[in-house]
């Protein structure tokens, strides 16, 4: 449904988005991750047709956003960053306005306002003026606006920003639910959301895609992925390291050891070997677990500007210049 080819955006000399290409199909929830200033919002604004791209193209369904913006915009619901709403209107007035702009009228309008008000738990504040609402309600009002025409494509810029933990949880379930029938893309810098709501995630940094995969695949990029952590009395690092499937052994505090497998896929074999060794040596096990890999660690390792990276960035800019 969303098709992005070689999308670029330059502000002056600054390349905010630099050659992004990806697609989002119906039934997919794509999480769009990246540090602040990585180009997430700029990309979202180009997808929704608010900013014209410097190069490349975006199409929604069969419509090119640059060539037939109205048709493309009709298919889309958009929750902008900071969830801007007309603050001098009542929630009901605002939703009715958006419904009318989406071509709904009469009974259809009334029903869709009611539907999104229920979906976003706005029933109790419908007649209240928007600038008297708390941040969470404002946010949900703006989300309701994006859903009013039951769009096939949903674009959300930091949808859970400013919500309390309960609201975040509700919203993630809602996103997951909607992802079954729609193409959904949302940006965030909260990594737990990727696990909670996404079927796929893209990490961008300085306008480029640095990782693209399912949450599980991304976690596997972690150096912890597949490592076995053992806490046992009497455990001996040398004996563990001598095991055939074991690679490096890292001592943790409190008598714990983290054993990394020699081959990445060989985690199950390693666990078996460690169990046999523990039984043979008679160590007393307190804990034994296989590490899943941490998204935040993957995120840090690929987006932190280390010296090697900045050197290559310098080379890149020189090549461009």
């Amino acid at each position: 449904m969303i098709n992005i080819e070689n999308l670029c955006k330059t502000f002056g000399h600054n390349k905010a988005v630099d050659g992004l290409s990806f697609t989002v199909e119906r039934g997919e929830v794509l999480g769009f991750l990246g540090p602040n200033g990585a180009g997430k919002s700029t990309t979202m604004r180009m997808i929704t047709g608010f900013l014209p791209p410097s190069a490349g193209r975006v199409s929604i369904g069969n419509y090119d956003v640059a060539k037939s913006p109205l048709q493309a915009k009709r298919l889309m619901g958009y929750l902008p960053e900071n969830a801007a709403c007309y603050s001098d209107m009542s929630v009901h007035g605002f939703l009715s306005f958006v419904a009318e702009m989406r071509g709904l009228s009469g009974d259809a309008k009334r029903r869709s306002v009611q539907r999104v008000a229920e979906l976003c738990f706005l029933g109790s504040v419908l007649q209240q003026q928007i600038d008297t609402l708390s941040k969470g309600y404002k946010h949900r009002t703006c989300l309701a606006q994006a859903l009013i025409h039951d769009p096939e494509v949903l674009v959300m810029d930091e949808p859970t920003d400013g919500l309390d933990p309960n609201q975040k949880h509700e919203l993630r379930s809602l996103i997951r639910e909607m992802g079954r029938t729609k193409a959904v893309i949302f940006s965030t810098h909260i990594l737990e959301e990727v696990d909670a709501a996404c079927s796929r995630a893209i990490i961008i940094d300085r306008g480029r895609i640095v990782a693209n995969g399912t949450p599980a695949e991304l976690k596997n990029m972690s150096e912890f992925a597949g490592a076995v952590t053992l806490v046992a009395q009497g455990a001996d690092a040398h004996k563990l390291a001598a095991l055939a499937p074991a690679g490096r052994v890292e001592p943790l505090g409190g008598g714990g050891m983290r054993v990394y497998p020699r081959d990445r896929g060989a985690s199950a074999v390693l666990v078996k070997a460690i169990m046999q060794l523990v039984a043979h040596e008679g160590w007393k096990i307190e804990a034994l677990r296989t590490e899943e890999g941490h998204l935040d660690e993957v995120f840090r390792s690929i987006t932190l500007p280390d010296t090697a990276k900045s050197a290559s960035a310098v080379r890149d800019t020189q090549a461009v210049a």
């Binding site: 604004r45 929704t48 109205l70 801007a84 958006v98």
Partner: peptide, 14 residues
């Protein structure tokens, strides 16, 4: 200032 311009211009309007 309030950012509603983004909302308005991403609705299906010229």
């Amino acid at each position: 200032r309030s950012g509603t311009m983004e909302l308005l211009l991403t609705l299906p309007v010229n």
